[in-house]
Simulated assay, not measured.
Amino acid sequence: MSDFDDRDRILLAGLAFYGYHGVMLEENKLGQRFRIDLELGLDMSDAAKTDDVASTVHYGNVYNVVKEAFEERRFKLIEALGHHIIVRLFGAFDKVDWIRIRVRKPEAPLPIVAGEVAIELLRTRDQI
């Protein structure tokens, strides 16, 4: 994964959504909060040189795709939700080479006082 550490990326962190994803009946009925962190890898050298938004991916458009993907269907597993969001982002933005997503469930149905559960996926375009 270190190949990705030195590359350009767009970051969206702590995006909060309310949804009905999960295995447990209570999660499907009552819903819960989710947090999503994203890294989208792309070459931003032209955008840096030209100051032209057409040379990059607009993060507002990224948010819109994530929100739509999050809300369009229910998933039992946050792994499947994360994969679905990645597929939709690759479909929407040709300039993106790789995506890292972390889907967090701060209120997962576990007997813990503090903490959260999360998954993290890292995919290149050819892995979808």
Rank of each mutant, 00 (worst) to 15 (best):
S2Q: 11
D3M: 12
F4R: 05
F4C: 02
D5S: 15
D5E: 13
D5H: 15
R7P: 02
D8W: 04
D8C: 01
R9L: 08
L12Q: 07
A13C: 07
F17L: 03
Y18W: 12
G19K: 00
G19H: 07
Y20F: 15
H21I: 07
G22I: 06
V23S: 08
V23M: 14
V23C: 12
M24K: 08
L25R: 04
L25K: 12
E26L: 05
E26G: 04
E26I: 03
E27Y: 01
N28L: 14
L30F: 07
G31M: 05
G31Q: 08
Q32S: 14
R33K: 14
R35S: 11
R35F: 13
D37A: 14
D37W: 10
L38I: 12
L38F: 12
E39H: 14
L40V: 06
M44Q: 12
M44R: 09
S45C: 12
D46M: 09
A47L: 04
A48K: 14
T50V: 04
D51E: 11
D52F: 06
D52L: 00
D52A: 10
V53W: 02
V53D: 02
A54P: 00
S55C: 14
V57F: 09
H58G: 05
H58L: 10
N61G: 11
N64W: 08
V65F: 02
V65M: 03
E68A: 14
E68F: 10
A69C: 04
F70H: 03
E71L: 13
R73K: 15
R74Q: 13
R74H: 10
R74Y: 13
F75S: 06
K76C: 07
I78V: 10
I78K: 03
E79R: 08
G82L: 06
G82F: 03
H84M: 12
V87W: 04
R88G: 06
F90L: 04
G91V: 02
G91L: 11
A92R: 05
A92V: 02
A92Y: 07
F93A: 05
F93C: 07
F93R: 05
K95E: 04
D97W: 10
D97Y: 12
W98R: 05
R100P: 11
I101T: 09
V103R: 00
R104F: 01
P106C: 11
E107F: 09
L110Y: 12
L110K: 03
P111G: 11
I112T: 13
V113T: 15
A114P: 03
A118Q: 06
I119R: 02
I119E: 09
L121C: 02
L121Q: 06
L122Y: 00
R123D: 00
R123M: 06
R123C: 06
